[in-house]
């Protein structure tokens, strides 16, 4: 093994700037996609548990479709195929005039993909709430919407905070796939530094450390949220 170490390359303003800009993109893609995932995922997850057969089948189809196609393929379909499939004007707008096309595409693809995983957690959460509670609410004369609004959702959303932590971490890791459509996020920047300087070890180490720091920060944030949202005395909550 012969390798010329040169850690100082990481602190040269140019390359340090690349890393920081990559970090910025990684965080922006992940957080924006997470917002989409939470909104769409909650709707789809709730939809799967509804008594209406049509809606629940539609939501199940969404989950199966987005979960069983690799994220990379989805990213390419959004970026390369969708503009071709849309009516001409819309397609041309996506290809030419849409601002930040790589960023927007990455956020949409990652968001809708993660939504299918969030939906599964939401559904599982709703199904964990004991049947008796919603029966009692119905017996009180609550409508389906009220049962969800006042009974099922407040409990289940607090129950699913712990499993959501791992989905939240995954969204940061999966944001690295944006590099395949040309977004220079953290992984792409570290590879670019490796190519320019031949200091691959240093460049990848820097990216690795930053990802670990992101994971630690996200874990701490979610642990705080978990403590704040925990339902005191709820069965099965401890350990």
């Amino acid at each position: 093994m012969n390798y010329n170490w040169n850690w100082s390359v990481l602190f040269e303003p140019e390359y340090l700037g690349w890393l920081m800009s990559g970090l910025g993109w990684t965080i922006s893609v992940a957080l924006c996609a997470w917002v989409i995932a939470l909104v769409v995922g909650s709707l789809v997850g709730v939809g799967r548990t509804l008594p209406n057969k049509f809606i629940s089948t539609l939501c199940t189809a969404y989950v199966e479709l987005f979960r069983n196609v690799p994220l990379l393929v989805q990213m390419f379909i959004w970026y390369f195929a969708v503009p071709e499939m849309l009516p001409e004007d819309a397609g041309r707008w996506m290809k030419r005039d849409m601002p930040q096309p790589e960023f927007v595409t990455a956020v949409v693809a990652l968001g809708l993909y993660t939504a299918s995983r969030v939906a599964e957690q939401v559904r599982a959460g709703i199904e964990t709430v004991p049947k008796g509670l919603s029966s009692a609410a119905t017996a009180q004369g609550m409508s389906v919407a009220q049962v969800y609004r006042y009974v099922l959702l407040p409990i289940s959303f607090r129950l699913i905070v712990p499993p959501m932590t791992s989905e939240f971490l995954t969204v940061f890791k999966n944001s690295s796939l944006a590099l395949t459509i040309g977004l220079l996020e953290l992984t792409a920047q570290s590879q670019q530094i490796a190519e320019y300087t031949f200091q691959s070890f240093e460049a990848y180490t820097a990216a690795t450390i930053i990802y670990v720091l992101i994971a630690l920060t996200a874990t701490v944030a979610m642990t705080l949220l978990e403590r704040y949202t925990r339902i005191p005395g709820y069965v099965g909550k401890e350990g």
Binding site: M1, Y3, L169, K173, N174, S175, S176, L177, L179, T187, S190, Q191, A194, S200, F201, Y204, A207, T208, Y211, V212, I214, A215, L216
Partner: peptide, 24 residues
């Protein structure tokens, strides 16, 4: 815990660089 906090793409890049270096 280290592996679980980094993206797979970065791990692939790592081993594309490390394996030939280690094997020679």
């Amino acid at each position: 815990n280290l592996i679980r906090s980094v993206p797979l793409i970065l791990v692939i890049f790592w081993f594309y660089f490390l394996v030939p270096l280690a094997v020679g």
